[in-house]
């Protein structure tokens, strides 16, 4: 016989309760924000997500036709240009976002994990960029692969991660690293929703009175 007590201890039940209390719908999709959320700096987090969406969308179009299509098709070349500029805008927005969050000390109030997932996403993105550059199947790819291998080899990582192996690099670039980047970004944004946007530093007056 299953008792009420047993049901409340089920994994599924506990997961539902935990999720609902950590992520109530009005936190996930709030209809308002604190008044201090009024600065151009908040644009860059959203811009980074948008650029990431563009990176993935244009990458998917390149994937439909395969890695060498863009050398022989003018449409393919344009899609490659879109992919490249999505990446440049993505990194630009992300780095401004990073510096913004730094100067806001946005890790305060239990938001350290938000900062850290952001940092890991940054490093993951650098890996995605590098593997992308060496998957271009052109001179640039040849040069970057042969140059970057020395740094990677010097750490011992090169013994399993071979920049000169196009098959391996392409897999990392289009499967593993995008999966990681998207999962990390999801976690990152989710954590911002859970914790709410960090309040400004208290001013002298607020501090003494509060």
């Amino acid at each position: 016989m299953t008792t009420q007590h047993d049901i409340s201890r089920q994994w599924t039940t506990r997961a539902r309760h935990g999720l609902l209390s950590a992520l109530p719908a009005d936190k996930l999709l709030p209809d308002g924000q604190p008044t201090y959320v009024a600065s151009w700096i908040y644009v860059f987090g959203v811009a980074t997500v948008s650029a990431l969406v563009m990176v993935i969308a244009t990458g998917c179009v390149l994937a439909i036709y395969g890695p060498t299509w863009w050398h022989v098709s003018s449409i393919g070349h344009f899609v490659n240009s879109l992919h490249l500029w999505s990446v440049e805008v993505f990194f630009f927005a992300m780095i401004v976002h990073l510096w913004g969050k730094f100067f806001m000390a946005a890790w305060r109030g239990g938001r350290a994990l938000t900062w850290m997932t952001g940092g890991v996403t940054f490093l993951t993105s650098i890996g995605a960029g590098l593997t992308g550059y060496v998957s271009q199947t052109n001179f640039d790819a040849q040069w970057i692969a042969t140059q970057a291998k020395d740094g990677i080899n010097s750490t011992g990582i090169g013994s399993v991660f071979n920049l000169l192996d196009l098959g391996q690099m392409l897999m990392w670039h289009i499967v593993l690293l995008p999966l990681a980047a998207v999962a990390l970004t999801g976690l990152h944004v989710l954590m911002v929703r859970v914790k709410g946007v960090v309040p400004p530093f208290a001013t002298e007056t607020e501090h003494h009175h509060g």
């Binding site: 999709l29 709030p30 209809d31 308002g32 924000q33 604190p34 008044t35 201090y36 959320v37 009024a38 000390a105 890790w107 305060r108 109030g109 960090v198 309040p199 530093f201 208290a202 607020e206 501090h207 509060g210």
Partner: peptide, 18 residues
Amino acid sequence: PDRDVAEWHGGSQPYDLL
């Protein structure tokens, strides 16, 4: 102050996230 925040008691404003 570099780790903690005082809870926010100020107001909020409408904000259409999506």
